[in-house]
């Protein structure tokens, strides 16, 4: 079982990130994936998040308790949710938007300038797809194909190709990141 939290501020599409990964896993990767999200005023600004519980068996407890993976796309969300992480968990951030605090635990950190990449592709609104691409190559929790299959219906039809491009950009960056990391190892 893997507990994942996607976080950021309202309007960045962090709920959509949970939906895309959840749909990819449960419809195309044969996993159980239960997504819940923050509702109310916080979903329309300030720190908001979607939570995904991924499992080989049916998910019983629907909420995440301690996330193994935290994706943060804003400083506020990072500050709010980072303390939940335990040792050996994974932290993924947009490094232009999140300034990391000194680490006290063994947390693996992966960063991508998702918003900047999205702007380079023409629209910062697709930063979440860059992030999903990066997330996919780093965590390998959901397959690249499944995620792409999950996109129609969750992103506007006319922007489907742009979203796929954003995904690919993040995915490739992730692969490079991993390669660099493995090169660093003695």
């Amino acid at each position: 079982m893997t507990d994942i939290r996607f976080s950021g501020y309202g309007g960045q599409g962090v709920i959509r990130m949970g939906l895309i990964i959840g749909k990819a896993l449960s419809l195309y990767d044969n996993k159980y994936a239960t997504m819940t999200q923050s509702f109310g005023p916080e979903a329309r600004g300030s720190a908001c998040s979607s939570q995904l519980v991924v499992s080989e068996d049916r998910v019983l407890y629907p909420y995440i308790i301690t996330p193994e993976i935290l994706v943060s796309m804003s400083q506020e969300a990072y500050d709010k949710y980072e303390p939940e992480l335990k040792d050996n968990s994974i932290m993924i951030t947009d490094n232009d938007l999140v300034k990391l605090k000194p680490l006290k635990r063994k947390i693996k950190i992966y960063s991508v300038p998702a918003t900047r990449f999205a702007e380079e592709l023409g629209n910062r609104i697709i930063a979440n797809l860059v992030m999903i691409g990066f997330f996919a190559s780093i965590t390998k929790i959901a397959s690249q194909d499944s995620i792409k299959k999950a996109l129609p219906g969750l992103v506007p039809d006319r922007f489907l190709n742009l979203n796929i491009k954003a995904f690919d950009k993040g995915f490739e960056y992730g692969l490079k990141f991993l390669k660099k990391e493995s090169n660093k190892k003695p």
């Binding site: 449960s26 159980y32 997504m35």
Partner: peptide, 10 residues
């Protein structure tokens, strides 16, 4: 309830 109402699953 709210939990199931807002919970996404297959």
């Amino acid at each position: 309830d709210e939990c199931i109402g807002h919970m996404h699953e297959k």
